[in-house]
Computed example of a mutant assay.
Amino acid sequence: MKISNNGINLIKKFEGLELKAYKDSVGILTIGYGHTHGVKAGDVITGQQADAFLREDVHVAELAVNANVKVKLTQGQFDALVSFIFNLGAGNFVKSTLLKKLNAGDYAGAADEFGKWVNAGGKLLPGLVKRRAAEREAFNS
């Protein structure tokens, strides 16, 4: 499967667009729509470059869903999982109870797991609460 425009828009909404490198909530250098690979202090990109980075990063998240999810998914479920992985990384997803429940066919239980991933750097972040709620809603759509 591939992410839909709704999924891309979900990611863009919560990542926001920054054309100049900055440190995220846990101190990682970030640019564009949450792109972190190879970012250096002082980097500046264009909107077109930000979109290209987003496509690359989303592709990695798509691969993680397609390789690890063993049950059928709706487009909304796929989009939600790609957004989740985009934000948290494939390693967290692969080890998650969310994936275990999903692969056991417990879709409702998997949906309930989104709300447990709302901390960064040991702190509850309101932005992550909103993002996980939106991902859960997409998952259940």
Score class of each variant (00 low, 15 high):
residue 126 P to W: 05
residue 99 L to Q: 14
residue 118 V to L: 00
residue 124 L to V: 15
residue 111 A to Y: 03
residue 100 K to D: 07
residue 88 L to V: 13
residue 114 F to Q: 10
residue 89 G to H: 00
residue 104 A to D: 13
residue 95 K to T: 14
residue 104 A to Y: 06
residue 98 L to K: 02
residue 85 I to R: 12
residue 120 A to H: 11
residue 94 V to L: 11
residue 121 G to H: 13
residue 92 N to A: 15
residue 102 L to V: 06
residue 104 A to T: 06
residue 106 D to Q: 08
residue 123 K to Y: 08
residue 120 A to Q: 10
residue 105 G to C: 08
residue 87 N to W: 11
residue 92 N to F: 03
residue 90 A to Y: 00
residue 96 S to E: 03
residue 129 V to Y: 07
residue 98 L to G: 01
residue 86 F to R: 10
residue 117 W to R: 09
residue 101 K to S: 02
residue 97 T to Q: 14
residue 87 N to C: 12
residue 120 A to F: 11
residue 95 K to H: 15
residue 108 A to G: 04
residue 88 L to Q: 09
residue 98 L to S: 01
residue 119 N to F: 12
residue 90 A to M: 03
residue 106 D to V: 10
residue 86 F to W: 11
residue 115 G to I: 00
residue 103 N to V: 12
residue 95 K to L: 13
residue 114 F to G: 06
residue 128 L to W: 11
residue 128 L to E: 09
residue 84 F to W: 14
residue 86 F to D: 09
residue 101 K to I: 02
residue 89 G to E: 03
residue 114 F to V: 06
residue 128 L to A: 10
residue 91 G to Q: 03
residue 107 Y to P: 03
residue 98 L to W: 05
residue 97 T to Y: 08
residue 93 F to W: 02
residue 115 G to N: 12
residue 101 K to D: 01
residue 127 G to F: 08
residue 117 W to M: 05
residue 124 L to H: 13
residue 101 K to A: 02
residue 104 A to M: 09
residue 104 A to R: 10
residue 89 G to A: 03
residue 126 P to K: 13
residue 128 L to Y: 11
residue 111 A to E: 08
residue 125 L to H: 05
residue 86 F to A: 08
residue 92 N to Q: 15
residue 96 S to H: 04
residue 112 D to Y: 00
residue 109 G to A: 06
residue 122 G to R: 04
residue 121 G to N: 13
residue 117 W to Y: 15
residue 92 N to L: 15
residue 129 V to Q: 13
residue 121 G to C: 13
residue 113 E to Q: 15
residue 129 V to N: 07
residue 103 N to Q: 09
residue 106 D to R: 09
residue 127 G to R: 06
residue 111 A to F: 01
residue 92 N to D: 10
residue 93 F to G: 04
residue 121 G to E: 10
residue 122 G to L: 01
residue 93 F to D: 06
residue 99 L to V: 11
residue 87 N to S: 12
residue 92 N to C: 10
residue 111 A to K: 07
residue 117 W to A: 03
residue 88 L to M: 14
residue 98 L to N: 02
residue 94 V to S: 11
residue 129 V to E: 11
residue 98 L to E: 01
residue 119 N to V: 08
residue 128 L to Q: 08
residue 84 F to M: 04
residue 105 G to M: 07
residue 113 E to T: 01
residue 104 A to S: 15
residue 119 N to C: 06
residue 95 K to C: 09
residue 109 G to K: 05
residue 125 L to M: 07
residue 99 L to I: 12
residue 105 G to T: 07
